[in-house]
């Protein structure tokens, strides 16, 4: 029958909930998300390692002027060559270098500063909280792209400068989430009870708040942060302010390839674009799935 919802046989067996692991309780869809996400993440990490070991099918900078814009599969170029006859696959793999370390830096800045200020605001309260929140709002109210362009104009279009700004502008986000967690624990009288027990402040902050209650938040922030980094670099590259040629990045590959789209040479920009799409999707699904599993959104 259509429209019918099937409910499984109700179990009457006494089952001890603790014997079931967290993973079993998660819905299959979350596992699927996380599985796909982990696959993408491992591809990214693998690409990074291959790139830094220079273990590539071709030299990404070597121009083969006889093979300009070769379609995929021609002469050992698995994904074809670009407008200067460089191997697209190799450039894709090396392209991840542009994001990996700078991205981690952005994430580290966001999480570290966000945590410090979040704990200050949530744990101390009072005037400190007001000051931190005003500061956070101030940072939040700046259009991020404008800020980045300002920094590029003042210094130079360096991916590290960009990522520091990205990290700094993400601080309010992490801050408010950490503060939210602390407020939740406060509301449940958790912190008061811990103080009453005689626990030291640093134990409460590091063990109970950060380790037990914020670690899932950090993982999720990290995965989503990585996706964001890639997106921002892409938009900047499109404006010509991202990673500069001849160093490959997915953003500038899309940008330079787009010029040849009308000539029917679609693989030049489509390949890196698809790489961006699937990678960001992977990070987002990983973050989403982890969120559901770690925070138990679906299991209740």
């Amino acid at each position: 029958m259509t429209g019918m919802k099937q409910y499984a046989q109700a179990s009457l067996m006494v089952t001890d909930p603790s014997s079931r692991s967290m993973w079993k309780q998660a819905a299959a869809i979350d596992l699927l998300y996380v599985g796909y996400g982990l696959f993408i993440v491992s591809l990214v990490v693998l690409s990074y390692i291959l790139g830094s070991l220079n273990f590539l099918p071709h030299n990404p900078q070597e121009m083969d002027l006889s093979l300009l814009m070769a379609p995929p599969g021609v002469a050992g170029h698995l994904l074809g060559t670009d407008f200067m006859g460089r191997d697209i696959l190799s450039r894709l793999i090396v392209g991840i270098q542009a994001y990996f370390v700078p991205g981690l830096l952005a994430i580290a800045i966001a999480i570290t500063l966000g945590t410090v200020f979040g704990v200050l605001a949530g744990y101390r309260g009072g005037g400190v909280e007001t000051a931190v929140l005003y500061l956070g709002n101030l940072v939040d109210s700046f259009p991020r792209l404008v800020l980045i362009l300002l920094v590029i104009a003042a210094f130079k279009p360096d991916i590290y400068y960009i990522m520091i700004i990205v990290g700094l502008t993400n601080v309010p986000n992490v801050l408010s989430q950490v503060k939210g967690k602390i407020n939740f624990l406060k509301q449940k009288n958790f912190i008061e009870a811990a103080v009453a027990l005689g626990l030291k402040n640093r134990v409460i902050i590091f063990k109970h708040i950060l380790w037990y209650n914020c670690r899932s938040l950090f993982i999720i922030q990290a995965t989503l942060g990585m996706a964001e980094v890639i997106l921002i670099e892409t938009s900047l590259s499109y404006l010509g302010f991202g990673v500069q040629e001849p160093i490959p990045s997915w953003g500038n590959m899309v940008q330079s390839g787009a010029n040849y789209l009308l000539q029917g040479k679609f693989w030049l920009s489509t390949t890196p674009a698809l790489a961006i799409l699937f990678t960001i999707l992977g990070f987002h699904l990983l973050g989403d799935g982890l969120n559901n599993i770690l925070e138990g959104r679906r299991s209740t």
């Binding site: 029958m1 429209g3 019918m4 919802k5 099937q6 409910y7 499984a8 046989q9 109700a10």
Partner: peptide, 10 residues
């Protein structure tokens, strides 16, 4: 009752 099928929307 051990198993149920229901058209909840309807």
């Amino acid at each position: 009752i051990m198993a149920v099928q229901k058209d909840c929307g309807g």
